[in-house]
Structure formats: C-alpha cells, structure tokens
C-alpha cells in the first residue's frame, strides 16, 4: 500500500529542490497541485512508466502547464526517468521544459503552456476513448486563474454535449494567480470568487467540491469517473492553498514564481520534515 501522504510530501520536496537548484520555475501553483497529483499517479491512474505509450493507459493533461515541475517530480517518483534528471529542469536541451512538451518527455500526454488549451485536448482524449470503445479515463488539471480563458468554457460545453463521463477536470482552486486584482481596501491581491460550482453545473457537469489537500476526499471524488450510472463529465473543485505545505509561502501570490534563498530553502525543507545535513 502506497503511503500517499509520503508521496505528496516527496513531490513538494522535489519541487523545492528543483526550483532551488535550478534557480527558476514556479513554486506556489505546483505546491497547491501536489496532493491531487499524488492521488492521481499513486492511487488512481493506470499507467506503465516502463511503457509510457501504452495505448490503454489513463491520460493526464496538465492544462495549467506552468506547474510542470510538480508533474516532473511526480513522474520521476513514479519511475518514468531518473530523479537526478529533475536538475536539468529549464536548461538548454533538457527534456524537462518550462512547460510540458510531449515531443521531448515520454509520459507527457499533451503539450501545454498556453492557458486554456489543455482541457480541449483532454476532451479530445475522452472522446477518442468513447469512439474506440476503450476504458481509459482522462484527467485534466485546470487552474482557477486559467479558467478566465474562454476556451475552457467552450470545452466544457462540448464535453457535456458528448456525455464524456470518462473525463474528470480537477480545478486547482488556490485563489491566487500571477498578479490578479487588487483588493479594494488592502494591498492583498487575489483571483475573484468565480462561483465554480454553479458554473460547471450550468455547463452540464457533475460537480464535486473537495478539500484539495485531503487525500481521501480527492480519491473519493475521482471515483466518479468509474461510476457506470454517471453520464456527465466530472468537475472536481479542489479547494487548495497556493504554496501549500510551506508556512511562509501559503497564500502569498509573490511565491507564484520566486526562487527561495538558502535560508528560505532550508526552512522550507525542514517544514517538510527533511533532516538537513
């Protein structure tokens, strides 16, 4: 039995190590996505790291492609490639591009990076499974900021029209984006409340809201794609905290993409239970 808590913690450590070592990359968004990725890759998804192109595999699309580092760490931990390759992240000729590139790294089901596009590809994959009468599921992770892109809702409408019950979209609803809107009475910045539940419901989706850092809640919600009675695509609104797991990064939009200093890195790793040398 895989210890999912441990996996999630390892994903967080890997994100920090990579961004700290490479001195670049996003950090807040990847940390908010870590728990969902742990559940997907270490509990739910049928994949074969030794055979990344296995045609029956479940698909995953990181529509919020700037959280690539979280996916790379997850894939490394899953055994798709050597852990040390993480330290090539963002470097010239690396397979680990700033945003996921399916032409370079086996295990990436779709290239993403320009927001709003991955979900459409996910709809295509789920539609392909229906056309080919295959059982694989498709999972798409969307950002809440990303949901400002109109294409997201074009995709949502078509997925419902084709009853893609084999598709789950997980909205990493961390409430922050790169810059966002200034609050009227303070210096705080955030993504406005967008009433995701109502929106996805109105678009014809089955909607489940979970604490995006509670592994059992995430796992239970993801089971909806295996429910034979369900005829709707599944939207899981994962209420998350940007920078989750590191006290001084949580809820701080500045940590969207910022490299920790040595003392910040040490402090962060300590919070994740790492015994520093």
């Amino acid at each position: 039995m895989v210890n999912l808590h441990e996996k999630a913690r390892e994903i967080r450590k890997g994100i920090l190590r990579t961004v700290y070592t490479q001195k670049q990359g996003h950090i807040g968004g990847p940390l908010s996505a870590a728990d969902v990725l742990a559940v997907l890759y270490f509990d739910k998804m049928a994949v074969k790291p030794e055979e990344p192109e296995w045609t029956e595999r479940d698909r995953f699309v990181l529509s919020k492609g700037h959280s690539a580092i979280a996916l790379y760490v997850t894939l490394a931990l899953k055994g798709y490639f050597e852990y040390d390759e993480l330290y090539t992240f963002d470097a010239l000729h690396s397979r680990l591009q700033a945003h996921p590139d399916m032409t370079k790294l086996p295990g990436i089901d779709m290239s993403t990076g320009s927001l709003g596009q991955g979900i459409s590809a996910g709809v295509g994959m789920a539609l392909a499974a229906k056309l080919q009468k295959k059982d694989y599921k498709t999972y798409v992770m969307l950002g809440d900021g990303e949901s400002q892109e109109g294409q997201v809702w074009e995709a949502a409408a078509v997925a419902a029209r084709y009853n893609l019950s084999n598709l789950a979209v997980i909205v990493d609803n961390n409430g922050l984006q790169q810059y966002g809107w200034k609050e009227a009475d303070s210096s705080e910045r955030q993504t406005p409340d967008v009433r995701f539940e109502e929106k996805w419901k109105a678009f014809g989706w089955k909607v489940l809201t979970v604490d995006g850092h509670q592994l059992d809640e995430i796992a239970e919600a993801l089971d909806a794609v295996n429910d034979k009675e369900n005829k709707q695509p599944v939207a899981i609104i994962a209420q998350t905290v940007k920078g989750k797991g590191i006290s001084f990064m949580e809820g701080q939009y500045e940590w969207h993409s910022k490299v920790p200093t040595e003392s910040e890195f040490n402090k962060a790793m300590k919070e994740l239970g790492e015994v520093m040398p």
Binding site: T55, M110, G116, S120, V123, G124, M125, L127, A128, E154
Partner: peptide, 15 residues
C-alpha cells in the same frame, strides 16, 4: 479554438 484542441487530443490517441 476548442475544436482545434479537441482534434489535437483525438490525434494523440490515434484518431
């Protein structure tokens, strides 16, 4: 825009 993206997703699965 979605139509093109859906086509891309279909193509990754051999359609």
């Amino acid at each position: 825009q979605n139509m093109v993206g859906v086509a891309a997703g279909l193509a990754t699965c051999g359609i």
